[in-house]
Design a protein around this nucleic acid. Structure first.
Length: 763
DNA sequence: GACCTGCTGCGGCATG
């Protein structure tokens, strides 16, 4: 039967009303699968704005149209409140002719709307994982009435959940709902970019039931691609000013106007190609976003362009972000300087050009960003990359001259063109999320026997590596910390510390956030800054694309009061850095050692590549190991994890080694010192020992760790660190290879020395 | 130099 015929009559009428002339192939496939004879879980994968939401909701609404009440029949889980608000409008529009209520529930939803759902649960509910968590913890008795008849769960932006603690939380929640209410809904994942299809299916359902993959036929609109190299020839103004001040013996001016000429040049060129259009400019950091937006805005103003420059990132107030989104949708010329907050499917209308300033950390991220343009039929996707590199000065090292950041950008473009994407690790242990779900289950059940707890966690599929012994060790640790306790009848309940944790409103999220100060202008929220990097009163601050003077800091209320000003100083934000995949590093190395010049490089970028290749030849980067007089240089380009593992193997054995960016190592000792270390490591890599070193000496368990890592038994944390942050097999293979290379080099050297000695004797 | 996501219940006050 044709897909349209399978739809419920009211849904069909709605499509007539909306003057749809045909269903897209992905929608027809989804309808035929979900309304066919054997509907199963499925993943619908197709580009952004290709009608994925409708592909899921047309069949779901059809299926529940005649029986919409007696509980929520379909749940939509979204990773962002803004996305939920957008989708709420779209689903409501689809439901206008139907007697089918649509509800939304997240932190900004008022009591009235919440009451309406609780009073008569029915229809569709759009919700975040955190709000679902709050329901599980606070309203366990109401769950059967709310979700007992749940038939479908739609998970939007599935790729954002894969392999993350938040993803484990969501999968665990679905299992908990099933245990409590008996409902076992069909799961429908929606995604634009999937690096590993089988992994995505395994993540969605792990009990062996089939998961159907419904994919749009390959074939994307034409891609117009250009990569520009930009040289930073001199230090930024701030540095120069500081140096001049230092020479004069003066205090550095607090209101230094930090202007980076390279960023200014990028801004001028972006305006040149983007003026009069609607564009997204992705920059590498929030600090750079603000600095670049300021450069763009002052140039647009000086040239009297009507183009508006807006800003969008995670440290801006909701009102500021909504202003940017509305302006993008308006159709008036607009350039948004943004972070990955605009990667996901929030409605921002049609985008003409996507600009990437400084390389992204992953290929998947770049693909998501590019997916934002070329969505109008017949238009091309346009991507411009601007990669800034320091012009090498007299002190530049080989590593400076390799232009690694530029190379990472070009390598990411190359992999993107080959349709390669990073694969998420969906089999990871998710220990921090495990602690979170364990405490949450104790709150939900007000007590559960240990024998019932293991299956509830293990059978959820959220914690694939969990053994009974691991859980027992974890329970002992949590008991010792008063987070849980065991009653005389054997039931596990929350302890005093556990109750305190669960009752705090910060409990519901699996991720942690640093303490932040709110930035206010005349009582109006602009955004937030981390407590650890606050500017002082009297200093300047760029935020939300405008220039401010810090008037006063109210530590008690955690507020920074600002007023408009002319001085500019980019804000600072603390952050870690993600691990780069081995494939991306490998491609950087291939680029260095190859001789092909991609056609999309402009003249300066081609020059950068040529310079980097010359430096690579001079530095003998092709050789994995070079023995110099006072040190050994190891060129890895093997991914951050291999580098971290080898570095730990050396320093934990007392060697002086240090990392060169994340692609190489320098060992400051003779081979007689470090060769035995690597030989032992190659033969028997001991992940636990390396993790122990990282835990005790580098405080890896607190600094940069996940939210509840601090409550894990040491042994459990170490095993997961070794598995998730290190690459033991990869590093052991490298160690073995280096041992062989070093032995060969030394043998060659000895032979040469012997030969030289022989020649000397002959004389 | 380097990303992002989320949040309850209740007391107190103003307003119709």
């Amino acid at each position: 039967m044709p897909a349209f015929e399978l739809l419920h009559p009211t849904v069909q009428r709605k499509l007539w009303d909306m003057r749809w002339t045909e269903l897209r192939p992905i929608q027809a496939d989804a309808i035929e699968h979900l309304l066919g004879a054997q509907p199963t879980d499925c993943i619908i994968s197709s580009p952004t704005a290709s009608g994925k939401t409708e592909a899921a909701f047309l069949p779901v609404l059809s299926a529940i149209a005649d029986d919409p009440a007696g509980g929520v029949r379909a749940v939509y889980v979204g990773p962002l409140k803004a996305l939920i608000d957008d989708q709420f409008g779209r689903v409501e529009e689809l439901c206008t002719r139907m007697e089918l209520p649509v509800h939304r529930w997240h932190g900004d939803v008022g009591d009235g709307a919440r009451g309406a759902l609780l009073e008569a649960p029915a229809g569709v509910l759009l919700i975040t994982p955190e709000s679902l968590e709050a329901m599980l913890v606070r309203r366990p008795a109401q769950l059967p009435a709310l979700f007992g008849r749940l038939a479908y769960v739609v998970i939007d932006e599935t790729h954002a959940f894969l392999g993350t603690g938040r993803g484990a939380q969501l999968v665990s929640q679905l299992h908990r709902l099933r245990v409590r209410t008996g409902a076992d809904p069909i799961r429908i994942g929606l995604s634009a970019t999937l690096g590993d299809r089988d992994a995505a299916r395994r993540w969605l359902r792990r009990d062996g039931r089939p998961v159907r993959l419904i994919e749009a036929a390959a074939g994307s609109p034409e891609l117009k691609l250009r990569v520009y190299g930009v040289w930073r020839r001199e230090p930024p103004d701030a540095e120069r000013d500081a140096e001049r001040d230092a020479e004069r013996g003066a205090e550095p001016a607090p209101a230094a106007s930090a202007s980076d000429p390279a960023l200014g040049e990028v801004a001028a060129r972006i305006l040149g190609s983007c003026r009069g259009k609607t564009n997204l400019v992705f920059a590498g950091s929030k600090s750079m976003i603000e600095a670049l937006a300021d450069e763009l805005a002052s140039r647009a103003k000086a040239a009297s362009l009507g183009d508006e420059i807006v800003v969008h990132h995670g440290s801006l107030a909701k009102e500021e972000r909504e202003h940017a989104e509305a302006r993008l949708r308006s159709g008036l010329p607009c350039t948004a300087v943004c972070s990955n907050t605009l990667e996901m499917g929030i409605d921002i209308g049609t985008i003409d050009e996507v600009v990437q300033v400084s390389p992204p950390w992953s290929v998947a991220s770049m693909v998501q960003r590019l997916g934002r343009s070329g969505r109008r039929p017949g238009t091309a996707r346009i991507l411009r990359g601007f990669f800034i590199e320091d012009a090498p000065g007299p002190d530049a090292t080989i590593w400076d001259r390799l232009h690694l950041s530029f190379l990472r950008g070009v390598a990411a473009v190359e992999l993107m063109l080959e349709r390669w994407l990073e694969a998420p690790d969906v089999d990871r242990a998710n220990l921090s999320a495990l602690v979170h779900q364990l405490l949450s289950i104790l709150a939900e059940t007000s007590g559960i026997r240990a024998a019932d707890l293991y299956p509830r966690l293990a059978e959820s599929g959220a914690f694939p590596a969990l053994t009974r012994a691991d859980l027992a060790a974890l329970l002992r640790e949590l008991g010792a910390r008063d987070l849980i306790e065991q009653l005389p009848d054997g039931a596990l309940v929350l302890g005093l510390a556990g109750i305190e944790l669960v009752e705090h409103h910060g409990f519901y999220a699996t991720f942690k956030t640093a303490i932040e100060f709110q930035v206010l202008h005349q009582g109006r929220a602009l955004g937030t800054l981390p407590e650890s990097l606050l500017p002082a009163a009297g200093e300047h601050l760029l935020l939300a694309g405008r220039r401010w003077l810090v008037e006063e800091i109210d530590a008690e209320r955690r507020c920074v009061h600002v007023s408009p000003s002319r001085g500019r100083q980019p804000p600072r934000f603390a952050s870690g850095q993600p691990d780069v995949a081995p494939s991306l590093h490998a491609r950087m190395r291939d680029l260095l050692l190859g001789d092909a010049v991609p056609a999309y490089l402009d003249e300066a970028a081609a020059r950068m590549l040529a310079d980097a290749r010359a430096a690579a030849r001079q530095g003998e980067i092709a050789a994995p190991l070079r023995l110099l007089d006072d040190r050994a240089v190891v060129s890895l380009f093997a991914g951050t994890r291999v580098q971290r593992t080898l570095w730990l193997a050396l320093v934990s054995a007392g060697q002086r080694a240090h990392a060169v960016a994340d692609v190489a190592l320098e060992i400051h000792a003779g081979t007689s010192a470090w060769l035995p270390v690597l030989r032992r490591f190659a033969e028997a890599p001991d992940g636990d020992a390396l993790a122990a070193y990282a835990e005790e000496r580098l405080h890896a368990r607190t600094a940069g760790a996940e939210k509840y890592d601090e409550y894990l038994p040491s042994a459990l944390w170490r095993r997961s660190y070794a598995r998730e942050r290190l690459d033991l097999d990869g590093a052991a293979a490298w160690a073995g290879r280096l041992v062989v290379d070093a032995a060969e080099a030394e043998a060659a050297e000895a032979a040469e020395a012997a030969g030289a000695a022989g020649t000397a004797e002959e004389k």
